[in-house]
């Protein structure tokens, strides 16, 4: 045979390689651990998380993903303070993969940390766990000087869907200096159940950033707030077609008869995504007065628009059986 060997059968006991003097040998052994036949790899990973070499620690922080044991979580929380950036990042990424809400308490112990990186990572890890205890710290996180922390804290509140955070989220959506924080807050308001959030969302339709305006137009449709119709109609004049697409979709969801004119006008816009969305919305509104405009759209250059126009016309007919 030739001078190569089946790689998966390379010699070298994994345990010995994990303790090798050469950091690169240890690092490769750590990479292999999750794929090895060893049954109980957690103790080995914990040792590697405390390795003297930063790259070995970073590799271990990646390899420990999927372990929800408190020792692993504590070790990762510790690595958020690691001197090496790569290790800190790996630890933060792995923490964000946690699924078990029983780890909420451990994470909550770290929310008093002064380091913005650590705090942001902890909030990011808390978000999918949706533990009630994260409400208070996330609310105070909204006033943190670091935008990164405020983004993650806002995210936690959106996932928690706790009525008590609607007021603070409204404030953030209207006033936070950071665009991304405002956008997340506007999206987070999507769990509201009453009109209390309407002023904040309509305010966001006039935000200086189009991404915030886009998010607001979408959230208003998700909430089906009838009081938003006039504002969404105004948003159909936004400079950005992305905002108008969302506004059109929301006007359709709201079955806003008042929007007939702006939606019909959008049927001649150069971007076909917007024409498509306007056609769908006109179908959902179901008002026969849209028929002439839709009949023109049957000759649209985009076949997708033509097809959706057919469906919209059909929808209007079945909503108005008398005709």
């Amino acid at each position: 045979m030739s001078n190569f060997q089946a790689a998966e059968s390379l010699p070298g006991d994994l345990t010995a390689r994990l303790a090798d003097a050469d950091a690169e040998v240890r690092r490769i052994a750590v990479m292999e651990l999750p794929y090895s036949d060893e049954d109980d790899i957690l103790p080995m990973l914990l040792t590697a998380l405390a390795d003297k070499d930063a790259l070995v620690r970073a590799e271990a922080a990646k390899a420990v993903e999927g372990f929800e044991e408190p020792e692993a979580v504590s070790a990762l929380l510790g690595l958020l303070h690691d001197p090496a950036e790569e290790t800190r990042r790996a630890a933060a990424d792995t923490l964000s993969e946690l699924k078990d809400d029983r780890n909420g308490d451990l994470l909550l112990q770290a929310v008093g940390d002064n380091d913005p990186f650590v705090l942001a990572a902890v909030f990011r890890a808390l978000r999918p766990l949706r533990v009630p205890g994260s409400l208070a710290p996330a609310l105070s996180g909204l006033d943190h000087p670091s935008p990164q922390v405020r983004r993650e804290a806002t995210g936690v509140l959106g996932y928690l869907k706790h009525a008590g955070s609607l007021g603070p989220l409204t404030r953030v959506a209207m006033n936070d200096p950071d665009t991304e924080v405002r956008r997340i807050a506007v999206g987070a308001l999507g769990f509201a159940t009453d009109v209390e959030v309407l002023p904040a969302l309509t305010h966001a339709l006039d935000d200086s950033s189009w991404q915030v305006r886009e998010e607001a137009a979408g959230t208003l449709g998700k909430l089906k707030l009838t009081g938003a119709v006039d504002h969404l109609i105004a948003a159909m004049g936004d400079r950005y077609w992305q905002v108008r697409v969302r506004a059109a979709r929301s006007l359709g969801r709201l079955k806003a008869v008042a929007a007939l004119e702006v939606l019909s006008a959008a049927l001649t816009h150069e971007i076909s995504n917007l024409r498509k969305e306007a056609v769908i919305a006109l179908g959902e509104v179901g008002d026969p007065r849209a028929i002439p405009a839709l009949e023109t759209a049957l000759k649209d250059p985009d076949p997708d628009v033509r097809k959706l126009t057919q469906l919209a016309l059909k929808q209007i007919q079945s909503a108005n059986p008398a005709r």
Partner: peptide, 9 residues
């Protein structure tokens, strides 16, 4: 990880 909106839907 699937794409979710800001409330986790």
């Amino acid at each position: 990880k699937f794409e979710k909106d800001e409330t986790g839907d």
